[in-house]
């Protein structure tokens, strides 16, 4: 028996592993989202707080149920469902009825993730799948925006938040257009500084471009996230919208308006960078970023809806595996066609 003890174990790479990588990444991303979350709570008050908490709780519950249904150990502890819930909550209007938040979170987890096999197998960003379905299901509620920094925001909830399940929310708070819909439908531009700082209406977590960028810089610094995706998306949006703007500044919105309004920052930094849904090679990632950037400007400028970041990223997710196939890294010692030289 003594000889067997000396058997060498031969295995392929990777040889160096860090323990519990998934929960570390999820923790870091949530940490990076903290400034945006804090800003959301400050500017939308109780409405945002309830939306975010409900989204997280429902996502975690959905993840647990999904794991139980297929008889797998619950993966709630890795934090991915929590992050999906948080991201989903941040893309919602802060006064959305809580029962809708729950429906959306279940769709995000079940349809966006569990049906594909769970974390690591989801081709689309689950939070955006949830939001896209919500957008098509409750188009009016999903485009009813409560005012930012309303004086009574810490003492009372928007009436829409507590609508009874399955009933239509009744709007009584001050609501109005987001900067993007104001531009699209009334051609009113919003001050770029307001957009950058975030004192505008919009989804719970998308308003402050500055704080989201801070989170992004932190993630890149901690090497949790590559810089290429957000940078190419933002650069592409700036270049394409800039070209249109130079062509005709009265018809087309300025590049800084495009960069700092709507969900672009949140999408580019936290959604498009989903590790599962984005391509693997550097070239693939750059193409992916360009594609999303162009789609964002095209949808915002010519499509019927004011905001297109969500659809642009979902389309990018759909194309990511094909980009990977298109750009396969060459195996060392072979030609581009895969043959030996």
């Amino acid at each position: 028996m003594s000889g067997l003890d000396k058997t060498l174990l031969v295995s392929s790479s990777p040889h160096v592993r860090k323990g519990r990588a998934v929960d570390r990444i999820m923790f870091e991303v949530m940490l990076a989202l903290l400034p945006a979350v804090a800003w959301s709570l400050w500017s939308f008050g109780l409405g945002a707080l309830f939306t975010l908490l409900t989204a997280i709780a429902a996502s975690v519950l959905a993840e647990h149920l999904a794991c139980r249904m297929v008889g797998r150990p619950s993966t709630v502890r890795d934090g991915s469902a929590m992050l999906t819930g948080l991201l989903f909550g941040l893309t919602l209007p802060p006064g959305l009825a809580l029962w809708m938040v729950v429906v959306g979170a279940f769709i995000a987890i079940f349809l966006g993730k569990a049906l594909f096999g769970g974390l690591g197998y989801n081709p689309f960003n689950p939070a955006l799948v949830g939001r896209a379905v919500m957008q098509a299901t409750f188009p009016v509620a999903m485009t009813t925006w409560v005012a930012s920094t309303a004086p009574e925001r810490f003492t009372r909830l928007p009436s829409t938040t507590l609508a009874w399940p399955l009933t239509q929310p009744v709007v009584d708070v001050v609501s109005g257009p987001t900067p993007l819909s104001a531009w699209k439908f009334s051609h009113q531009a919003t001050d770029a500084a307001d957009l950058f700082m975030g004192s505008t209406m919009g989804s719970a977590g998308e308003t402050s471009a500055l704080l989201i960028l801070l989170g992004g810089v932190y993630l890149v610094g901690r090497k949790v996230m590559g810089w290429r995706i957000p940078v190419t998306i933002l650069a592409t949006v700036a270049v394409v919208s800039g070209a249109l703007w130079l062509w005709d500044p009265t018809t087309y919105a300025s590049p800084w308006f495009h960069l700092f309004s709507g969900g672009l920052m949140l999408g580019a930094v936290f959604m498009a960078t989903d590790m599962v849904g984005s391509p693997m090679t550097h070239t693939g990632v750059v193409l992916y970023g360009i594609l999303i950037g162009v789609l964002v400007v095209v949808i915002r400028t010519w499509a019927g809806m004011p905001e297109g970041v969500m659809y642009a990223i979902l389309l990018g997710n759909a194309l990511a595996p094909h980009l990977d196939r298109l750009i396969q890294p060459r195996v060392y010692g072979t030609t581009r066609k895969g043959k030996a030289p």
Binding site: M100, A136, T137, F138, A141, A163, W164, L166, T167, Q168
Partner: peptide
């Protein structure tokens, strides 16, 4: 349902 029912628009769409 009572008039306050919120229709799920997506269900009557192709999706």
């Amino acid at each position: 349902f009572p008039a306050a029912f919120q229709p799920w628009v997506i269900m009557v769409l192709p999706a």
